[in-house]
Design a protein around this nucleic acid. Sequence first.
DNA 1: CTCCAATATTCTACTAGTGGAATATTAATA
DNA 2: TATTAATATTCCACTAGTAGAATATTGGAG
Lengths: 200, 200
Amino acid sequence: MSLKYAILVCLSDGPKSGYDIAKQFDEKTGFFWRARHSQIYRELGKMKDNDLARAEEVEQSGKPNRIVFTITEAGRTALLQWSREPSEPQVLKDDFLVQLYGIESIDLDALRRNLLLRLERHQDRHAEYLVKQKLLENGNSLGDLGRQLALDVGIRWEHEWMDWCTKALEKLHPDALADARATPTNIIPMDMGETRNAER
Amino acid sequence: MSLKYAILVCLSDGPKSGYDIAKQFDEKTGFFWRARHSQIYRELGKMKDNDLARAEEVEQSGKPNRIVFTITEAGRTALLQWSREPSEPQVLKDDFLVQLYGIESIDLDALRRNLLLRLERHQDRHAEYLVKQKLLENGNSLGDLGRQLALDVGIRWEHEWMDWCTKALEKLHPDALADARATPTNIIPMDMGETRNAER
DNA sequence: CTCCAATATTCTACTAGTGGAATATTAATA
DNA sequence: TATTAATATTCCACTAGTAGAATATTGGAG
């Protein structure tokens, strides 16, 4: 997927400047879409060239002029076409996953510290999304349903990471680690038998 | 994060050619790391230049010669250093999330079809990972623990997506959709009150 | 006995995204 | 009164990743 469609969705809600779009990404859709303003303006230029949006310069008193983009019919068609293409799940890319595969070659103390840090980040985000969810819960429009479903993905995502970080920290507990590192046979005296990675 | 560290982790397990690394990505770590062979060879060249790995050409009868890369001390140090840096959660990028925000401008029938397709893909992967988990469950080494934890992320991820796709399909049920589209006031006669996006 | 899969690497053109400097103005804050 | 935040856009150098053509050899399946 590309930024193009994220911008088209933004514009389908009404005409916006590059600045507006950047703000919307930051404030509203930041948990699943981010882009630097440099990229947004560049993309808007291309979209204008391809007739997916048309530009209009609006004079403002005080502030610099803004260039407002409006979605065209071709833009709406492109959006519709895109939604018809089959979507492939994206690849889960996370530092931890690579580090865990190389667990024997990394700094385990640092990994534990990072797991703790990340746990906090995920807890913060989770709480933040729950607040957003509260604001949406009374909406009954199709648009609200979409936003509720999207936010739910974010909430699940953060929740699973919180849960996983906690579990990983337990398994990589200092005592267990000390034992694992002390014994070349690598037997970790934990309750792996009972609480192993079975489905929750 | 970059491919560099994924390759260093690969090499920390023993010398490998670009081909071996590509195969490992495909077979073992495909759920969280993928790279085209073109990118891998390009990266290996850079890593050789930066003294993170050294190359050795090995003659083979029959097959073309392979260039085997071995991690250097500098490579091991870089890996260690990297694991000490704080890790930021990655952004959740998924077509569906963008489409849900633009739900009023997309093809809803197509969305439902795609949700069904994706549900199947996630079910397949989930089943596949459970098989992998079974193979790992008796391992007690530190390396096995790392692989178990990493795989667990993949299993959770697929499980949540399966669950979410099912829920989204229910909410976007044809009848509900027809009602939502027929009424301009956009009141969706569903049990949103009871089963809304509360935490599971 | 032909074609395909597997092994193995190089190359080029491309798209996507990062990171930040540069520029300009006004309103609010300290 | 100095400066910082907010508004608004352009530009440039860079990293990361996609996609696939080109080349070469052997063993096995049909």
